[in-house]
């Protein structure tokens, strides 16, 4: 697989003096599903924001060997505009890019249909459940056809069943569109289920301590969560996470 982006010695110290990440080296390959796992305050979110170009690193740089692709971002909260209905929320990226309204509406309607909300275009965020709001947020991210999707603990606030169904839908969308995903999570099981590769980070300042490749079956389902293959992957991530924590202590 070719390299999509790489972080070289990226450090970030905030104005408050907090050092979020120190000398982070990370390569992300085109088409992979990469999870960043680590305890709170290990700078996972900061790393995502640096990759998105929303904040500048204090030191180091982000390299894009074949240019910076279209990027989508999904936050922990659905982060919708309450005064816009689902369709107009999903349309936002296209609108900001200056795409003609009819075209933008068609594309965002299609994006809503793909996350299973085809019937809910006119619903306002307050009329939707937490899981549905997160689906609108994902529809908004994929409406602009990103090649890289950055997700910052997107399903952390959802119940287990909703989370599993969103996990499956996300895998399907990413595979269909050939999207590279960088997924930040606290959950060992979620990362074991979703990822081709899991990178474990130490607490503040964040550094990579383990890089775990997972050979995933093409077709994952509820039954997969019960296989030795899955539990083995979860076990390796868990061990690496425990190791990272003990180093910090």
């Amino acid at each position: 697989m070719t390299s999509l982006l790489s972080l070289h010695g990226v450090s970030k110290t905030f104005d408050s003096g907090t050092q979020a990440i120190a000398a982070l080296d990370l390569e992300v390959r085109t088409g992979e599903f990469l999870s960043l796992v680590g305890p709170s305050g290990c700078g996972k979110s900061t790393a995502l924001r640096i990759i998105a170009g929303l904040i500048a690193p204090t030191m180091g740089n982000v390299a894009w060997p074949s240019g910076r692709p279209e990027i989508g971002f999904v936050f922990q909260e659905p982060t919708l505009m309450p005064w816009r209905n689902a369709l107009d929320n999903a349309r936002l990226p296209l609108e900001l890019k200056g795409i003609a309204r009819a075209d933008a509406e068609a594309r965002s309607r299609q994006a809503l249909a793909r996350v299973g909300l085809g019937e809910f275009g006119h619903a306002y965020p307050r009329e939707l459940s937490g899981g549905m709001k997160m689906r609108v947020s994902i529809a908004r991210a994929i409406a602009a056809h990103p090649k890289l999707l950055l997700m910052d603990e997107p399903f952390a606030a959802l119940d287990e069943l909703t989370r599993q169904s969103l996990n499956d839908d996300l895998l399907k969308l990413a595979r269909e569109d050939g999207i590279t995903v960088i997924f930040v999570t606290h959950s060992v099981y979620e990362s074991a289920y979703l990822s081709d590769r899991v990178v474990v980070m130490t607490p503040r300042p964040g550094r990579v301590t383990a890089d775990i490749a997972i050979a995933q079956p093409a077709d994952r389902s509820v039954a997969y969560r019960l296989t030795p293959q899955f539990t083995d992957a979860a076990g390796r991530i868990s061990a690496a996470l425990g190791d990272a924590m003990s180093r910090a202590a």
Partner: peptide, 28 residues
């Protein structure tokens, strides 16, 4: 919402767009 402002920036929104489409409706 700080995250929405970030999202607007990610998609290359101008200050005017952030004001008109995000800050003013939110301030209503």
């Amino acid at each position: 919402d700080r995250n929405l402002i970030d999202l607007f920036r990610l998609y290359g929104a101008s200050r005017w767009q952030i004001l008109w489409k995000l800050q003013l409706p939110g301030a209503l």
